[in-house]
């Protein structure tokens, strides 16, 4: 279980909160989507959950491990796909997946699975021995996905995963996210693609100006119109 309690974050040289008193719980088997306009604070929350960004107030725990106090135990359970697909460009795809696997203590079998099965699933097997510097935007995204899954993390975090992907891969990734959660994992992802969020998520957290303004369980609200809700909330924010 992922538990975020009273999480707040202020960046240096900025008095305003980028995230304020966020409370969020995601259980195994759930896909939780973070929705909000640009600069709302989605990435700030995601980076705190993954342990990349230090924070001042609140606690974040994963399976009982505190990301601040027990970072190594907690991080071992996390896989992360960043929004800008930054990877080690001087490595080949295979070397990258191998290396990330080693850092997470993945077994040889897990690494082999990532470079053989997952690479085929995501259509990047042909480029595994090419230096990543020569990859296209979408290919970098795919190799990031492979690297994030090599150790079969309990929590899979994706920041804007659909950006730059072709429609086929978007559908593939959407289905994969759903299946990964159904296999007993937690998926947390941010997206501007409301259609994807509506189709794949169990819960949607709406973030505005660093605050969690609503947490909707889509399983209980079959007719929930996310698009209408989003537009209304954004309009309210713009008028405020």
């Amino acid at each position: 279980m992922l538990k975020i309690e009273k999480y707040s974050k202020k960046y240096r040289n900025n008095d305003a909160y980028s995230a304020k008193e966020i409370d969020l719980i995601a259980e195994a088997g759930e896909v939780c989507g973070l929705v909000g306009s640009n600069g709302a604070g989605k990435s700030t929350i995601i980076k705190a959950v993954t342990g990349i960004l230090p924070f001042d107030e609140g606690t974040i725990t994963l399976e009982g491990y505190d990301i601040v106090r027990q970072p190594e135990q907690a991080k071992r359970l996390i896989g992360y796909v960043p929004d800008d697909h930054t990877v080690y460009e001087k490595l080949t795809g295979r070397e990258y997946v191998n290396y990330i696997g080693s850092l997470y203590g993945a077994s040889k079998e897990q690494k082999r699975r990532a470079v053989e099965e997952l690479a085929v699933t995501f259509g990047i097997a042909h480029a595994l021995d090419v230096q990543i510097a020569n990859y296209s935007h979408g290919m970098k995204q795919k190799i990031c996905i492979l690297g994030s899954l090599v150790h079969e993390p309990m929590l899979w975090v994706l920041d804007e995963p659909m950006v730059g992907l072709d429609p086929q891969t978007m559908i593939l990734l959407r289905n994969f996210i759903r299946k990964y959660a159904d296999d007993g994992h937690i998926v947390l992802f941010s997206s501007h693609n409301l259609d994807t969020v509506q189709k794949v998520c169990d819960k949607v957290a709406f973030i505005r100006a660093g605050e969690l303004i609503s947490l909707t369980d889509l399983r209980n609200e079959k007719d929930f119109d996310l698009e209408a809700y989003y537009l209304k909330a954004t309009e309210v924010a713009a008028n405020a």
Partner: peptide, 20 residues
């Protein structure tokens, strides 16, 4: 395939975090 005839395939290794 868009691939190259001259390409060395690296192996899956079993290094731990420090060695890696």
């Amino acid at each position: 395939t868009g691939g190259s005839v001259f390409r060395r395939r690296s192996r899956v290794d079993g290094y731990g975090p420090a060695a890696a």
